[in-house]
Write a protein that binds this DNA or RNA. Structure first.
Lengths: 140, 140
DNA sequence: TTGTTATATGATAATAATTCTCCTTTGAAA
DNA sequence: TTTCAAAGGAGAATTATTATCATATAACAA
């Protein structure tokens, strides 16, 4: 993803384009491993040695509330961030902090069809996310 | 659930039975709304005015690691606790903090069958939890 | 019942991620 | 270039949770 594309994403949302915002969004996209705020800070400190911690959080909030990134919460209590905005599920390692995206349209259709006919009493479904817990058979 | 039953649950796990543990486990069962540590404290303070906050957390940890309760993590960052130990899913209100259990064996079987045949490359599934986000059509 | 000991509790300090405050800087529209 | 709302920086504050450690108590045995 080129910087121009990232700039455009930010402009499309009516946000001001700042070096910090570009760096942070770029970091989340490049890292592609659901980084924490700290991971992001470490990554961008090379090129932005003066960025403030609070700025990172503020930018992450701004990006998340403008749907440029998603917040991902885990069992342990650090927020993690994801730049993949298509609806998708997550694979959680039961032994480490590793999290991977899991996209499966066949599954989405299956679930959609299932709940369409069955439904849930007194509940209007907006989104379904699977947390698939287990063990990765490969190291990343 | 009678106190004797709660005592037995604790004894079965080889834990010492203390008034604090009974009160906390009882509170989670009675409240039945995935309370936070604070909710639990408020609830039991009537009968246990001197219980320490740290004790509540320690008891919650002890109960969770002995599989008498489950920790439930939400988008906001307070841990919540659940005494329903059968594998089940959760309905999350997109507008409030309400969380309800969702049990559906038909769905579990469907998912099991789906992943049994399809599988996930390089991943060994241990458990699948659905986060179903939407709106409740009733107030509790 | 009493004594013993490992374990649990209570009080309070510490921690760590995140948020707030407030002042300065900057992007972008005119 | 000017203007000014919005964004960033620095560091204090907040808040849920954990750690520490002295005291109390459950469970077991005598």
């Amino acid at each position: 993803m080129k910087v121009t594309e990232i700039r455009n994403k930010i402009i499309e949302k009516g946000l001001k384009v700042t070096p910090q915002r570009i760096a942070i969004l770029e970091a989340i996209i490049k890292l592609n491993n659901h980084p924490t705020a700290e991971n992001i800070l470490d990554y961008i400190r090379d090129n932005h040695p003066n960025i403030a911690t609070a700025t990172v959080y503020k930018v992450l909030d701004a990006l998340a509330s403008n749907k440029l990134i998603k917040k991902v919460k885990t069992e342990r209590d650090v927020m993690r961030y994801d730049a993949v905005m298509e609806s998708h599920h997550h694979l959680y390692c039961s032994e480490s902090d590793r999290i991977e995206d899991y996209k499966d349209n066949e599954l989405n259709e299956l679930l959609e069809k299932y709940f369409e006919t069955k439904g849930i009493p007194d509940f209007q479904i907006e989104d379904i996310k699977l947390q698939i817990i287990g063990k990765f058979m490969t190291n990343r």
